[in-house]
Nucleic acid binder design. Structure first.
Lengths: 365, 365
DNA sequence: AGCACCGTTGTGAGCGTTCACAACGCAAAA
DNA sequence: TTTTGCGTTGTGAACGCTCACAACGGTGCT
């Protein structure tokens, strides 16, 4: 009758307290049927289902992921792969960007909706380590899907490995447009939105601080600016390139602002470079926004608390990662996916760093 | 000879690509010996060890956590348990606190050193959900250790459940001082350091904005201020309580600053309330630090970027979580632990929000 | 020489779950 | 009535690994 169901308290070896066998014994149906109920499979009589479910609830049974994974089912794990060097650097610098938070929470919450779990994982930048570390993570965890963030999104070694293992992956902010799951945040369009916003406020000399070439988003943002400027018939000579760091932002801002005919507004490709630009402006006795308007990309928490609060393009990191999770789960189920890339668009958050030149004369405070 | 080692490519069911059996076949030793090498167990001849290791490296073998966990070994997983409501709220507010980052990275990096993995997990605040969710997480993941953050650190339901299951846990910022693994950040002492810093700069009327009673740290910080003030023979009438939110900081600051004999300096129990205090001061035409000095707790990224940058007590969240991880692993190995609570002390980061009253007269810019 | 002992290696079982497949029962079709 | 078929349930094996225990060989003791 009682088919080897553990009797007393678990001693020594720490084992699962209540297993599928307990449920089997309690509900009086076979192991397999219990499994069917757990996995919500078809062809189970409603009454059986009810009975099993009652036992599960009563005993507080939760299936062991380890055992599930062992017998070839899903692992219900999704890996968020990040570049170790870059992540640790950003973390140590504590410059107020919160994309780790956004990724983690945005991904976790969406995972939770589907009964999945997100695991945040760091992988090295160097080619030989990538293969070893990625293999280790995959073998150890056996995830059902992997989310790739820049610069890993465009790493052929990684995507190759994943393809060989037939693990679904989603790339965020990747260069490649077609093929597998791919998401972007509409960078080019949003750069256009920022530019047109400034044009509408009467700005004509609009400078741009681009990001480093390694990131696909850098060029996309620049393109958006270029196109919007051309559309408005304006000069695109005021462009400098930084590397997303504060220091590089200072240099770029300095070059831009010491021109003979300096910009009245600058769009920076991220918050740090915008903050740096603001500091340079201050050191040159220029007031933001009266003497220089500023729009930045990312909209990390810091930009709300500086004086003046910066107008910024919000990057919907959480939504994007959430969407990636959803696509991965869909793809695992074999359902069809929307055309790629999926774009989750940001929005322009207006604050106080842009002056309205069309209302000239009312300059003072 | 080739004992059932999978021959071709894995078809259909996605199985582990290279298993312990491949290593067994390749190295010519028994399965069990390979296992011994993997787990670094004693009583293996160096030559065997070398041979097995060579095969492992050659084949790129990595043990499957799932299988390891199945057969009763460690899971090499540590759970970081956070309050769902509070975490999501902080995340959505985007007020620039980076403790999620700090916890995650600090914990992950320390875990990586020991071959462990950190999993960030959210658990509800409500009693009935706690039990269900915690049980689910434990049954699914079977972690080797759990890190409890406030307010979960003092939740008897959680600690009880964990004890019953014999899972090691570490509490951070808990009220309870003895017993199991417990860590604090020396809040009381650091509040004293902040207070004495202000006293040394010539301040006599020093206000304090406390945190909510639900958090053990609130009272500890207040105690530190109280003691340091008493030590300096100063009045402790300037104390208000907030709840760590910006809004509550505004109210508290308002009450403090509209006194007949207002403070020349205020210590806020977190950054948000300090930021709020700064805004209130500005609205009352008080300049920081000339008219009001400010010291805050936490030292989150934002406080570096406001004008003036705030002097703050840095909370070593990453180090503390790292230490918790280490203690958990030690405890799992059955090694002895240091006396509890372990305290990881913060430090006073001096920036520009404190005026030196001893150099009176040189007030202007 | 005989014995106990320890370091080293191998063997069989079992962990909790799902897979493939077999077996059952009942309704519709021949 | 017999056949075909499908919905439903159960059975045995397998997943990758570690546990307890057995077996082997050598050393040191009596």
């Amino acid at each position: 009758m009682c088919k080897g169901v553990p009797g007393g308290i678990d001693v020594g070896r720490r084992r699962q307290s209540v297993t599928i066998k307990h449920v089997e014994a309690d509900s009086g149906v076979s192991l397999q049927t219990v499994s069917r109920v757990i996995n919500d499979e078809p062809n189970v009589r409603p009454e059986m289902k009810r009975r099993v479910q009652a036992s599960i609830d009563k005993l507080g049974y939760v299936p062991s992921i380890a055992a599930q994974r062992m017998s070839g089912s899903k692992s219900y794990l999704i890996l968020a792969l990040n570049d170790r060097e870059r992540t640790i650097e950003a973390w140590k610098a504590r410059e107020g960007s919160d994309w780790v938070d956004q990724m983690l929470l945005g991904g976790m919450l969406k995972c939770a909706e589907y009964g999945y779990r997100l695991i945040f994982e760091l992988v090295d930048t160097h080619a030989d380590n990538i293969e070893r570390e990625l293999n280790a993570a995959i073998a150890a965890l056996q995830p059902d899907g992997v989310i790739l963030t820049p610069p890993h999104s465009d790493n052929a070694l990684i995507t190759g490995l994943l393809e060989k293992r037939r693990i679904a992956f989603a790339r965020i902010g990747s260069r490649a447009e077609g093929g597998a799951i791919s998401l972007t945040m509409g960078d080019s369009r949003m750069a256009g939105v920022a530019t047109r916003h400034l044009v509408a406020k009467g700005h004509r000399r609009i400078g741009f601080i681009a990001g480093p070439r390694e990131y696909a988003v850098s060029d996309r943002r620049k393109t958006g600016w270029l196109e919007a400027m051309a559309e408005a018939g304006l000069d695109t000579d005021l462009c400098e390139r930084g590397d997303f760091s504060y220091a590089s932002g200072e240099e770029a801002a300095h070059r831009l602002l010491s021109q003979a005919s300096p910009p009245t507004a600058i769009i920076a490709s991220n918050d740090q470079m915008a903050l740096a630009t603001m500091a340079v402006a201050r050191s040159m006795e220029l007031t933001v926004p009266q003497d220089l308007s500023l729009v930045s990309f990312d909209n990390s928490p810091v930009v709300r608390f500086v004086q003046p609060p910066l107008t910024a393009i919000d990057q919907p990191v959480a939504d994007t990662v959430g969407a990636a999770v959803e696509l991965l789960i869909l793809s695992n189920r074999g359902e069809d996916l929307p055309p790629m890339p999926v774009v989750i668009e940001g929005s322009l958050i207006e604050r106080d760093s842009v002056a309205d030149l069309t209302q000239a004369g009312s300059s003072g405070v």
